[in-house]
Write a protein that binds this DNA or RNA. Structure first.
Lengths: 363, 363
DNA sequence: GTGAAAGCGCTAACAT
DNA sequence: ATGTTAGCGCTTTCAC
């Protein structure tokens, strides 16, 4: 029955055949190849396999090599789920934004995902659609998914609720949102809207404009409020009088800018410059000017905010305050990963500066 | 020491106090509140708790209610990781696209994520950056994460590799990519690029154009190949001669279209119409035309593909073959979920038609 | 350098 | 209607 000849004849093949049978059975039953399978095939314990695949020490190079080859051969793939349960680290992160379809946010997503990928994390993406309930539901689901951290972009959550979630997540990074007290597990990154608006106004002033309007976007938005403050500071800086009637709120899309501009221009026909809440609103300004027979930039100079990709494509090409959106996404992700990796010296409150890009909508 | 009086005096409070101590200890040690804590607090077995929180039957409404309240009170949150390990279902899905920053894909993402959210799934988003290695790495990571299914968008993977991944994922939906053999765990959704391109060419022909160029996008892309076929069919249909030198490949962004157009126009100065691979490429065509002093549409008519939001905003407004991107994303997600939920009658090969939208870039 | 045992938090299958 | 047992696939801790 058991002859030495048989065994020594083709031991490897026998072994391989046997394992193939086992693996075939596994695949029949739709079962994963596990660390136990690798261990059995290699004739070592599961621990040794674990050490090999995780590149931990305390194992000879020779056995590691052998185990790695076997793992490869029998099609072993580690289970992130099991690993997450055992280690309490999922290597998944959350990114919560209002709307990926908005080019401003999609650029942020791209920057964040790039870095997450480079760092070995996967990214859960969630859209809130500016809906608080949906945002809370999303955060709950991320909490259940055991994410190692999350980036929240332009969160509309009330302060109390937001604080509560920050406490529940291991780590969070907030984009364009401030919190009252500094927390060890939370960092914020804000675009310096005030400075940006100031720059625009100063530029307008230097060009000899005296009557400068602001199409201010949605009243409730933090960015809108900050841009209005910058507008006021810019006027003061240049010794102009702040006239509230030259400021008008609107929806942050093209149509909003169009309506607001028509209203503003009908009341102030000698307006010579307009700062728009964002680039889309600025496109609305263009439309209204065209309709009213005002030339841009000869009659009216226009500056937008954000520099979305098509700002440089529309006619006239739009001058705007550029935010490096992809860089912002990368920075947020870098900060999050630093927090996770317990980097002591990571800055908790970052500000990034927009850059004034001059194109054809200003002289 | 132990007097019945003490016990009966305020049993509930004692219990509550005790549990609070336990929970405080837990939170001190940064431990999760588990199903076992709820079970202990409620004085039932873990199974009963499990049944309660999962709304399974075989439990009285009364106990379910009581357990749910306790769970809520002590801050229990189910562990998706543990559940995934036990059930072999993660409630996570993967979405693999070339680039979220591209408005075509970001709209698809939005549609897909909306439906995933409604259906109780979370979505891992991955960008491939048109890089095959990165795509494979992404798929590997999704496999490790135990996703219940994945949507692959415009995959550049060689057929063999793609087939292999399809076999390894529980379910996949392919967008804009075909496979040789129908598989039970895979569906495909394709935009009818051929028909779209044909329509465009026929329209150009009807307008009296005789020399029509194609800025064809990336050579490896399926869409590019199909659009080229449609271009050829369209020419043939209208009795034009196919001249390969009027077709030029490029990167699928503005810059690519710009470069390609400059090249094409310098060699063929009498070109009177251009079909662009997508809207971004078409914007690049605009830029090049402007630089070369060609008016659109008077000197050159342009049609794009996709109809991204700003196609209707640029000047001139771009005529284009519209795809309902958000609808496509929703359809892909719906199909994936149907596959997962073992819907027998789900169609494995879907095609959606683009619509020719005429604006100002054509006469 | 390697292995055995226990456990992460949950649920399927089988009791009762 | 509720409880018990035995995992899911991996890592941690301690032993050798």
């Amino acid at each position: 029955l058991y002859s030495p000849a048989n065994v020594s004849a083709k031991p490897t093949n026998l072994h391989a055949d046997q394992s193939r049978i086992i693996l075939d059975q596994k695949s029949m039953m739709n079962k994963r190849v596990t660390i136990a399978d690798v261990a059995e095939e290699a004739g070592v314990s599961m621990m040794t396999v674990s050490r090999a695949i995780n590149h931990k020490e305390g194992i000879s190079d020779e056995t590691r090599q052998r185990i790695l080859e076997i793992a490869e051969r029998i099609g072993y793939r580690p289970s992130g789920v099991a690993r997450a349960l055992a280690t309490n680290r999922s290597c998944s992160l959350g990114l919560v934004i209002p709307d990926v379809a908005n080019p401003f946010f999609s650029q942020i997503v791209r920057g964040a995902e790039d870095l997450a990928y480079d760092s070995g994390y996967n990214l859960f993406l969630v859209n809130t659609a500016e809906d608080t309930e949906r945002e809370e539901a999303a955060l709950e689901s991320l909490l259940e998914k055991h994410v190692d951290g999350a980036i929240l972009c332009s969160s509309r959550l009330p302060a109390e609720s937001l604080n509560n979630y920050i406490d529940n997540f291991p780590f969070t990074v907030l984009i364009n949102r401030e919190i009252s007290s500094t927390k060890r597990n939370c960092a914020t990154i804000n675009v310096d809207d005030i400075l940006g608006a100031q720059q625009a106004i100063s530029f307008f002033a230097a060009q000899g404009n005296t009557l400068i309007g602001l199409i201010a976007g949605p009243e409730g938005s933090t960015s809108s409020q900050r841009r209005r403050i910058g507008y006021q500071k810019g006027l003061k800086e240049n010794n102009f009088v702040y006239q509230p009637e030259l400021v008008i709120n609107c929806e942050p899309q093209i149509e909003g800018g169009y309506q607001a501009t028509k209203q503003l221009l009908s009341a102030h026909k000698n307006l010579s410059a307009v700062l728009a809440f964002n680039d889309l609103v600025a496109f609305g300004v263009f439309q209204a000017c065209e309709e009213l027979g005002k030339r841009v930039p000869e009659d009216i100079a226009v500056i937008g905010f954000d520099d979305i990709p098509l700002a440089s494509v529309v006619k006239p090409r739009l001058s705007t305050l550029r935010t490096d959106k992809r860089g912002l996404g990368r920075l947020a992700m870098k900060t999050l990963i630093q927090l996770i990796e317990d980097d002591e010296k990571v800055e908790r409150n970052l500000t990034i500066q927009p850059t004034l890009i001059l194109r054809e909508s200003t002289i």
